[in-house]
Amino acid sequence: MKRYLPNLLRLAALIILIAFLVQPMLFEPLLKPLVQANAPAVYNQGSLLSLTLSHLATVFTATLAATIVAVGLAILVTRPIGAEFLPLSRSLVNIGQTFPPVAVLALAVPAVGFGEKPTLIALFLYGLLPIFENAMTGLSTLPPAIVEAARGTGMTAWQRLTKVEIPLALPVILAGIRLSVTISLATATIGSTVAAKTLGEVIIAGLQSNNLAFVLQGGVVVAVLAVLIYDAFSAVERVLSRRAGRV
């Protein structure tokens, strides 16, 4: 029983989240006490569902691009041919992480204007770092005996990469993607200050009209999404690393 409890809670959270996004009015009585008598308790300037979907789409697009680029770069710097780039890429990762997301967002605006684009760029750049760092660690800390065995059985460089190195590094790479997605889900809300369609709109509308219910629903939807996605990634990682005998 105790083992199933967390999963039951997650399922319940998912069901409530979907119910809220599809039929937000059902929850009005819960939110009513948070607002002044005649103010709306449920976000009414757009559809919560479509904001959530476009929030997720933004995060997904940015993370996908970041994953492709970061894993590609990590593969490059862990090959003999790209070894010269390794010290610099390590320090770039360190430096990059000191850039606050708001600053990245704000600095992207002059380059591409308002809307989705600066948000995508900020999420992309900010998402690169954890994925790159993890992919680099994963690919450069494989047990030498296994890499050696792959060479010994006559795999080409490409076969070694695709059949041995990447599958073995996958749990670590996934952990990087998980970190990146969680950060991006929260950071995307700030994108609404530069007119991106994300759940940040709900929160900012709440801040502007002093409507606590708006702030709460925007924030909680993002948080629940983040927790659920985080857990889903963790579960996949566990399966993969148990499979790889790295428990």
Binding site: A145, I146, E148, A149, G152, T153, G154, G245, R246
Partner: peptide, 18 residues
Amino acid sequence: ELRRRIGYAIQGHGLFPH
């Protein structure tokens, strides 16, 4: 190609864990 024709059993087995 050479290595596919020559068996190689490595110090400490080196099996692919995945």
